[in-house]
């Protein structure tokens, strides 16, 4: 028996109309509509498109949760084994809709889903980690190439076959690193790669160099003599005994510590929890990592308005950037709420 597939498309691909019809409310038609015809051919006898869910792009954008729930409902009603959305190419609202409904159906029903988007479609970054996205051209001229890839990726999932490397499957990378065992040890892979590189032959790196975020610099503090300054560190300085159990490496949390009345971080009162450097010097004098003593002096002398009575600390050792970012957002929020004007971040 063929697998039952539900297909999501927008008003344009359903032939209802262009921008002027983008507000059109959802409807479900039995069987194939528009690009579903080509998909039907690509799926062959193995899977059948039993229904097509059509929604105007603006309507979706304004009612994302409600329409996503309706798509889930329709998939249930038609006893769908899988969902295909799009292809949406470089259409921003349509692409976001396709990726959203895929994620919603996957989460609610745990059935295979797939869509096809252009690399720079905003839907990609929003959902690339959650759902498989076939790489499509930037316009409907790429339909011929996207459709067979969509069918292949969907059928593989329906049959419970593991998906290969993104490049082999025609998928956009999810950007998630996964461990695997190669045929050869790393050393031999490295020497073989160097030989190819020296010969000018093509080779594939196992890890493309990372790219990091950039932020716009903040304006300077207008008057340091009235400013409230906070201390934050990734050097792992914590009260002795590490009360929040911050891990020596790959920290999963940060600590918030009151230093009201503390003028100097003393050995035996504070320590480092960091497992990535020789702890001897930080444990002897934690001010070497978190300069509370000097800031108290400057506070007393009036060079700064005040030292914020709370410091924040985590361990920046084997700690994932995503974790560090989430700590930073939360710490930033708390500092802002406490009307701190500037932060000195120390790292080891």
């Amino acid at each position: 028996m063929a697998y039952r597939v539900i297909h999501y498309i927008n008003q344009f691909f359903a032939g209802i109309g262009g921008e002027e019809k983008a507000d059109v409310a959802p409807e479900v038609r039995e069987g194939v509509v528009g690009p579903g015809m080509a998909l039907k051919g690509a799926l062959g006898n193995e899977a059948e498109i039993v229904a097509t869910f059509i929604c105007g792009d603006n309507h979706f954008a304004n009612n994302m949760e409600a329409v996503s729930a309706q798509v889930v409902e329709a998939a249930r009603k038609y006893r769908a084994d899988a969902l295909i959305a799009g292809p949406a190419f470089n259409a921003g609202r349509y692409g976001t809709a396709c990726a959203s409904v895929c994620a919603a159906v996957k989460n609610a029903l745990d059935i295979p889903v797939v869509t096809a988007l252009y690399r720079e479609n905003p839907g990609v970054d929003l959902f690339r980690k959650e759902i498989p996205i076939v790489e499509a051209a930037d316009s409907a001229r790429g339909m011929g190439k996207a459709v067979p890839a969509l069918a292949r990726v969907l059928l593989k999932q329906l049959k419970g076959e593991a998906l290969g490397a993104p490049a082999e499957e025609g998928l956009l990378e999810k950007g998630i690193r996964q461990n695997m065992f190669y045929e050869q040890p790393g050393a031999e892979r490295a020497v073989s790669m160097l030989i190819k590189k020296l010969k000018g032959e093509p080779f594939v790196t196992e890890y493309a160099m990372p790219v990091f975020d950039r932020v716009t610099p903040r304006p300077p503090v207008a008057d340091m003599r009235t400013a409230r300054i906070a201390l934050v560190t990734s050097g792992g300085i914590v009260p002795f005994g590490n009360p929040d159990h911050i891990a020596a490496s790959s920290a999963q949390n940060f600590g918030q510590y009151d230093i009201t009345g503390v003028t100097d971080l003393l050995q035996g009162k504070y320590q480092t929890a960091h497992g990535g450097y020789d702890q001897t010097y930080a444990n002897q004098d934690p001010d070497r990592v978190l300069p509370v003593d000097v800031l108290r002096d400057l506070e007393k002398e009036g060079a700064i308005g005040s030292l914020h009575p709370v410091f924040y600390s985590t361990v920046g050792n084997g700690t994932a950037v995503a974790k560090a970012k989430s700590f930073g957002i939360e710490i930033g929020k708390r500092l802002k709420d406490a009307q701190v004007q500037a932060v000195i971040l120390t790292s080891t």
Binding site: A165, E173, K174, R177, Q178, P185
Partner: peptide, 14 residues
Amino acid sequence: TSELGFNRIGGRTL
């Protein structure tokens, strides 16, 4: 995860 490449383990991007 020996960086002398002692083992067969490696990584890939999904």
